[in-house]
Computed example of a mutant assay.
Amino acid sequence: MIKAADVPDPTVLYRIRDGVFAADLLIAAVAEFDLFSWLAVNGPLPSADLRADLGLAERPADVLLTYCAALGLIDRDIEAGDVVGLTGLGRRHLAAGSPFDLRSYFGSLAERPAARELVDVLRTDGQAAWAGAGATAGDQPTDWSGRLGDAAFAERITAAMDARGAFLGPVLADTVADIPVTGLLDVGGSSGVYAAAVLRDRPDARAAVFERAPVDIAARTLLRTRGLADRIEVITGDMFADPLPAGFDVHLYSHVLHDWDGARVAQLLAASFASLPAGGWLIDHDTHVDADKRGPLPVAEYSVLLMHSTPGKCWSVGELAETAERVGFVDVEHRPAAGDRSVLLARKPE
């Protein structure tokens, strides 16, 4: 098996794809809301006041502020109650009254379809069509979750997630090599590419992918093609409507939690806590925002795509740790992985 260390690092390519909507969010902030001129007059102030005055919904506003902080355009102090203020860069180049004002430069792109979609998301907290497809989706649902019910779309998304995991999976396996695994449940595991990686050096372990139809069909096909069907089964089910299968001492969520809102993230972690045995482990492999919500920039950019097309965002290390501890997990730990990804570990007490 070729290891990730033996191939060129594709992180720059992940960043191009994952950050595709980020520039449009800045265009929307400048051209529609004149965010930085407003902050020059009214800031620093709590983000809740900013949202109220500008008419922004909480989730997309959080993504916007993380992105702007990662760009160095605003200061953000989570510990002080999420107080937001303007930096010199933001004041000099994106606020009214500066001789170096670039607002008209960004405003010239205000008619970009993605920028207009993001204006609506910022105001309503709704989901735009996946990848901005809109009218091209025909009579199919345009939201990401709804389109997964279409077999062709589910197959295409499963193939996309599988391709991404070819490099990320082996690094994930190395990152959690010290975690004991007898049975691994890959919740929302798509093709099973991450479960396969974790089992690579664990010949006595088994795994199951828990997926809804019709993604389960694509997963079975890929696992059978790779000769892994005898080690990794596919269990069909809805992770929000059905109990998580028992008999597994490790639950893996890889690129799953970022697709969902806070209430459903908490629901999933609580379901894992209920299903895991004492001493069992939770592994969240994802793109995580720093606890101070000031970056890193590539993750903040990816969060824009998620905010645009799903009910989720890139959750911060602090937010996920708090949720995990609230449902009963202990020993929460954060570890870096590959491709701007990282791992959040948590254990169910003995």
Rank of each mutant, 00 (worst) to 15 (best):
V299R: 12
F248P: 02
H334M: 14
D230Y: 00
R156L: 11
A205D: 09
A338G: 00
Y253E: 12
G188L: 03
Y67P: 09
W130D: 09
S275A: 14
R294A: 15
I78C: 13
G237D: 05
V330Q: 14
R294F: 14
Q267P: 00
L269D: 04
H288A: 10
L148P: 07
L223Q: 01
V193S: 14
S303N: 08
L89A: 15
A270K: 02
A48Q: 11
M161Q: 08
D9H: 07
S190L: 11
A337K: 11
G295F: 14
A129P: 05
L252S: 05
R335E: 11
P214A: 08
V176I: 11
A154Y: 06
D101V: 06
L45Y: 02
A300V: 12
L64N: 07
A52S: 10
Y105D: 10
F248G: 04
A61F: 01
V198W: 05
A128F: 09
E322P: 08
G88N: 15
R156C: 13
D62H: 15
G134L: 10
R59F: 01
L268I: 08
P44I: 07
D290R: 14
D9T: 00
D286A: 14
I217D: 13
S145T: 01
V215E: 07
G90H: 12
L168P: 09
G134K: 07
L269N: 02
V317M: 12
I232E: 08
T142H: 09
P203I: 13
G126V: 00
L199Q: 00
R147E: 06
F210V: 10
R206W: 10
E325A: 15
A263C: 01
S108W: 04
V304M: 09
S104Y: 00
A57C: 08
S47T: 11
G262W: 06
D284S: 15
P311R: 03
R116T: 05
S191T: 05
A70C: 11
F153G: 07
V181A: 03
V265S: 05
L56C: 07
E155T: 07
R91D: 11
D82C: 13
H285A: 13
Y302G: 15
V12S: 09
D24P: 06
A129Q: 05
G55Q: 03
L276T: 02
D24E: 13
F329R: 12
A31V: 12
K348G: 01
D120F: 02
T124I: 08
P298G: 10
V343N: 00
A263L: 02
W281K: 08
T310G: 09
D9A: 03
L56G: 04
D242I: 00
A338F: 04
P311N: 01
V256I: 06
A300D: 10
T87P: 10
G132R: 01
